[in-house]
Design a protein around this nucleic acid. Structure first.
Lengths: 152, 152
DNA sequence: CTTTATCCCATATGATCCCATAAATTACCA
DNA sequence: TGGTAATTTATGGGATCATATGGGATAAAG
């Protein structure tokens, strides 16, 4: 499970250390890779462990062969995703287009989201957090609703 | 599995490098060729690994011999398809009619779609991506719906 | 005999590997 | 417990390798 968040440096080669805690989580997968793709709706990146992303992909592959919906999902998720391997020091190399998409320069924040994590330009992340606060009460209420439904 | 997308140059001879990541996927097939055909519905090309395309073809071959439906599929897929080999540097040569069909000149984008990939003129692809965004929420919902149905 | 495709080599760019350092964390022991 | 050693983590730079791409020679086809 990906928990808590970490800020790491991005060097001029585009390399960045994935937090050790996340790395050991990723190591449990059949390939020690992280699959990254640009969030279609905002300036950040999604990052999944290999096996979890594969499950995602399998669902898409099970959709009707050439249906428009399947094709759209394949474009936004499969074609946009990149499996990134680690160098000996636990770094990945963020491709140019990802760095651009997320406005990253110098530093990046890795934010655990449970079964995946996201990568942001730190200032953008802080702004997003601030905005989240306004929904906090409502979101919490929704959560407790769910809680009761599930008999928790 | 074909993941992520890459832009490569098409030289005046019509040659273009197939991304190395795709090449190594194609190399797992019984012949190191890629089977390409023009998308019937839009300006791009489909590209399959040899064995997977064969399986596809088998399905068509199992249809009643002279049925109009089989004949149409045979024309759009089998007759239009072309197995392309690689030169020593991992390039294929796109035949003139494919280049025309996809409006390709100078550059081409290879978009992984899981069990196959597609080839586009980059600007056309970007336009398509943009259009995809309008369906993003719905498509994602459909995917998670599938998710629960399948117990994922 | 011209045109077109294939093969072969040469090169630049960019990715990957490897080592070296520094900071932070943990382990160990007086 | 305080302090020191050992380990893990993050980071930087350079060497090496892979990939993409261009041009020309050779072979095949019309």
């Amino acid at each position: 499970m990906f928990l808590s968040s970490y800020v790491n440096g991005v060097d001029k080669k585009g390399r960045v250390s994935v937090p050790a805690a996340f790395r050991s989580e990723l190591a449990t997968h059949s390939r020690a890779q992280v699959v990254v793709y640009a969030a279609p709706d905002d300036k950040y990146l999604y990052a999944w462990g290999y096996d979890d992303f594969l499950q995602f992909a399998e669902k898409i592959k099970k959709m009707p062969a050439m249906s428009p919906q399947r094709q759209r999902l394949a474009r936004t998720l499969l074609a946009a995703a990149r499996p990134l391997g680690f160098d000996d020091n636990g770094r990945i190399m963020l491709p140019e287009n990802f760095i651009k998409h997320a406005d990253i320069s110098g530093k990046a924040i890795f934010a655990g989201q449970g079964d995946y994590f996201t990568i942001w330009q730190p200032e953008n992340y802080e702004a997003k957090q601030e905005a989240d606060l306004e929904h906090y009460e409502d979101d919490l209420a929704a959560l407790s609703g769910l809680w009761e439904e599930l008999g928790g």
